[in-house]
């Protein structure tokens, strides 16, 4: 018995949070991301290379989740939206105040191009029984995120494994 509440079981494999990115893919973030890891791949820095290989500038594939992270603040917004909202919903519904991500896998399809506006949806794939780890007692969950561009081409499928937990009280 996993002991997962039925209202959470009911969400498994159900598409949630069909969202459009708040901004188009832009080169400033691509260059900053390359700089953050000192990635000198000319595909991202040299327009002639990008034109030759990919028909124009593209983003580092590993940046795929960048494009749907909401702004930290925006006019008229009272509550800061969270990226991967299903993850935060689970923390709240299961009463697990802390969480870490342990596994991430992305399968890449069409390259993400400068100017693209991505659309995403999230699917909860599984929630484990309660487990005890060195962090505390909690549950593992797997959430998939599907990314498509404005031409409805699949650009990637990302799978996250998270662990929501309560820290053990000090002895």
């Amino acid at each position: 018995m996993s002991g997962v509440p039925p209202e959470i079981e009911a969400l498994i494999d159900v598409p949630q949070y069909d969202e459009v990115s708040e901004f188009p893919v832009e080169r400033g973030y691509i260059w900053t991301s390359c700089a953050s890891v000192e990635n000198g791949n000319p595909l991202f820095w040299d327009d002639a290379v990008a034109d030759e290989l990919t028909g124009g500038p593209i983003a580092m594939p590993s940046m795929i989740s960048n494009w749907f992270r909401p702004h930290y603040w925006a006019p008229g917004r009272d509550v800061q939206p969270m990226p991967l909202q299903v993850h935060f919903d689970l923390k709240e519904s299961l009463g697990l105040p802390e969480a870490v991500m342990s596994d991430n896998t992305v399968t890449y399809y069409e390259p993400v191009r400068v100017g693209d506006v991505l659309r995403t949806c999230q699917k909860l794939r599984s929630v484990s029984a309660e487990k005890q780890t060195k962090l505390g007692t909690g549950r593992f969950w797997v959430i998939d995120v599907e990314y498509r561009n404005q031409r409805d081409e699949l650009v990637g499928i990302e799978s996250w494994t998270g662990f929501g937990y309560r820290r053990e009280a000090a002895a």
Binding site: S33, C34, S36, V37, E38, N39, G40, N41, P42, L43, V49, L53, M60, P61, S62, M63, V100, M101, S102, D103, N104, T105, V106, T107, Y108, S159
Partner: peptide, 24 residues
């Protein structure tokens, strides 16, 4: 991003990532 850089430093720009998974 670090993992991508590590791999594509080796492949050069024609290397195209198909899948990347990691466990922290």
């Amino acid at each position: 991003a670090w993992l991508e850089r590590f791999v594509t430093d080796w492949t050069g720009p024609r290397g195209r990532m198909g899948r990347l998974g990691f466990r922290m």
